[in-house]
């Protein structure tokens, strides 16, 4: 295996990365995982990246004609978390990503996707929610590329970030690169704060401020996991809850 040079900030996909943290794990980093969903099959996959201080996950996914992949990813590393994927969506295939960044303290978390619709009639749907406290940085860099021959593709990105503290930063960069002319693509990105009226309502019912915040944040994030595989859903919910309680405290 040839050692690749550590990326620099000039590399668009690493613009907001924590390069010091990345440098520490770079030499031992596994190659991108290759996952192929065979034609006509429906797979779902859970990535729970919230155990180590630094978590870097890379994958190359190919969704064969008529197949579907539902991916659920929780990014919650305490120092640096990066989830990066290159996804090829073939004819009539479907890709769904539901992902969250939950970061407090000085953490940096990023979700970097490159979805390539190479053939007609494919669908991709990406929903990303970030909750950022302290001086944390959370990013979503999502590129959707639709090739010239990939007509009737539907690509959607919904990106929302919630900033809990003045020092927190959200970078939302949904990007479309469309060469076909008959495609439906939409993206929306919003950055907001907790609604003071909702907070007061929750506190007026007896919830202390930190608990009220955590509950509202659950409302913001946990819907991502509604359709997660049944045997992993509780795990995703509990891990998200624990992370949210920490950033809301």
């Amino acid at each position: 295996m040839t050692a690749l040079a550590l990326p620099t900030r000039k590399d668009e996909a690493y613009r907001y990365a924590d390069l010091d943290a990345l440098g520490r794990v770079w030499a031992d980093l596994a190659q991108a995982r290759e996952i192929v969903v065979p034609a006509g099959e429906a797979h779902s996959h859970v990535l729970l990246a919230a155990n180590e201080a630094v978590e870097v996950h890379r994958a190359r996914l190919v969704i064969q004609p008529g197949a579907s992949l539902d991916l659920f990813a929780l990014n919650g590393a305490a120092e640096y978390g990066r989830i990066e994927m290159d996804v090829e969506v073939r004819e009539g295939a479907r890709f769904t990503l539901n992902a969250a960044n939950i970061a407090g303290g000085k953490a940096t978390q990023e979700i970097v996707t490159h979805v390539r619709h190479t053939e007609p009639n494919g669908t991709s749907n990406q929903t990303v929610r970030s909750v950022l406290g302290g001086t944390a940085t959370g990013s979503y860099l999502g590129k959707v590329a639709v090739a010239r021959q990939a007509q009737k593709v539907d690509g959607e990105q919904s990106v929302k970030a919630m900033l809990l503290d003045r020092g927190a930063t959200a970078n939302c960069k949904p990007e479309l690169e469309i060469y076909a002319d008959d495609v439906k693509c939409a993206h929306g990105a919003t950055v907001g704060e907790l609604d003071p009226t909702q907070l007061f309502y929750a506190m007026s019912r007896g919830l202390p401020p930190a608990e009220a915040k955590a509950l509202l944040l659950e409302g913001f994030v946990l819907q991502l996991w509604d359709d997660a595989p049944e045997d992993r859903r509780d795990e995703l919910v509990e891990a998200s809850r624990a992370l949210l309680r920490r950033v809301a405290a």
Binding site: Q198, Y201, G206, E218, G219, V221
Partner: peptide, 15 residues
Amino acid sequence: VEIPGVSSMQFIRES
């Protein structure tokens, strides 16, 4: 007040 994503059950029980 509306609170999207949080069921009344959970809201009232936790409160």
